[in-house]
Computed example of a mutant assay.
Amino acid sequence: MLEITRKLIDLLDLSPIGDDHFQGDSEDLGFPHVFGGQVLGQALMAASRTVEGRLCHSLHAYFLRPGNHSMPIDYEVQRVRDGGTFSVRRVIARQDGKEILTGSMSFQVAEEGLSHQFPMPEAPEPETLKSEQELGQLLVDQVPEKLRDVLTRDRPIEIRPVNPGNPLKPEKQPPYCQNWFRALGPLPDDPVLHRCLLTYASDFSFLGTSMAPHGRTFMNRNMQVASLDHAIWFHRDFRMDEWLLYDKDSPSASGGRGFNRGNFFTRDGVLVASTTQEALIRERQG
């Protein structure tokens, strides 16, 4: 396993600090605040630590305040219900005594049932595409020094955009986006870890889908962007150390908010997870 991947696994490996209370470190990815996917992934890990024999099938969370990546995050898990098939947990993430995220997760005993899915959309093979880091290297001489590390730093999750645009010179595009995702290096056979890693990765390059029709990116100085909420449904088992296609669209944007949807497919076309997110995409005036 690569060292950078081990660091991410350690980031998700929370420390118990009391009954149903856990603490996780924060990671600085070069963003102004804690990456939302980190808080989501750690929150799911905290909830999963209080459930046995059941895997998460859905997650719904609200981002309440931006997180400070120089401080640890405390997670309180509330046991809402344990039924014969389903268990529900509520999670509150806090920094400095203030809530930064609240969410609910539902867990289910494995069972057979009716099954169908949308077909996987067409996409080029990941081997034919450049990674985000390789694309960032092409722009590194055109951005301020403080942004260079954001574009080129190594990540434990490799992302290969299907139709990459130039974030410095964005053009209006249809509200659709595709990326191939996988963790670098082999991972343990732990389905909880794979779900937490997908949760972490699902926040990358998501809200940008709703800005594409307007020719805006997170690098536009007059744009205030932030994730407002996030939901995930896990449909089938998968591995994060194998390529997954993240197929996204944005049906609507209005009122300073952009709505985004996504589906994760395995390379052989199995739909394993679906996501939605509403994001703040406010254009500052003046």
Rank of each mutant, 00 (worst) to 15 (best):
P119G: 02
W233K: 03
I157G: 07
M1I: 03
S15F: 08
L198R: 01
F107L: 03
F265H: 09
K248A: 14
P121M: 12
I73K: 01
L8G: 07
V140A: 14
F181E: 07
V39P: 12
D13W: 02
R89Q: 05
N68Y: 08
F22A: 02
E122T: 14
R284D: 11
G53Y: 00
R94D: 05
P188G: 08
D237T: 07
A253T: 15
F22I: 08
L138F: 00
R79W: 01
I92E: 10
M240H: 09
G37W: 04
G97C: 01
R153I: 03
L271I: 01
P174L: 05
L280V: 08
I159Q: 15
K7R: 15
G185M: 08
P121D: 06
H69I: 08
V51M: 03
H230A: 09
G113F: 07
L44I: 08
A212S: 14
R79V: 10
P170C: 06
P161M: 00
Q78W: 00
H194M: 06
T102M: 12
R81E: 08
L2M: 12
Q142A: 07
F204M: 13
Q95T: 08
R90H: 13
T5H: 00
T152C: 01
L59P: 05
H116L: 05
E125S: 14
R257M: 12
Q78H: 12
H60W: 04
V80D: 10
P16V: 11
A123C: 13
L2K: 13
G262Y: 03
S202H: 06
H230T: 09
K169F: 11
A61W: 00
K7P: 01
P167R: 03
I73Y: 06
E76S: 14
P119N: 11
R257L: 11
L193S: 07
Q117E: 12
I100E: 06
P156S: 13
G41Y: 02
H21Q: 13
N163H: 15
F204N: 05
H69F: 15
L44R: 03
R79M: 02
R236H: 13
R195Y: 07
L14H: 06
W180C: 07
V270Q: 14
T266V: 10
S58P: 06
E134P: 05
F31H: 12
A61S: 12
G256P: 00
F204A: 11
M1C: 11
Y246G: 04
S274K: 04
N222Q: 15
Q277M: 05
N163S: 15
Q173P: 00
V91T: 10
I159L: 15
L147V: 02
M211C: 01
S250M: 10
D10V: 07
T102L: 11
E158M: 09
V80G: 00
R284Q: 15
A212H: 15
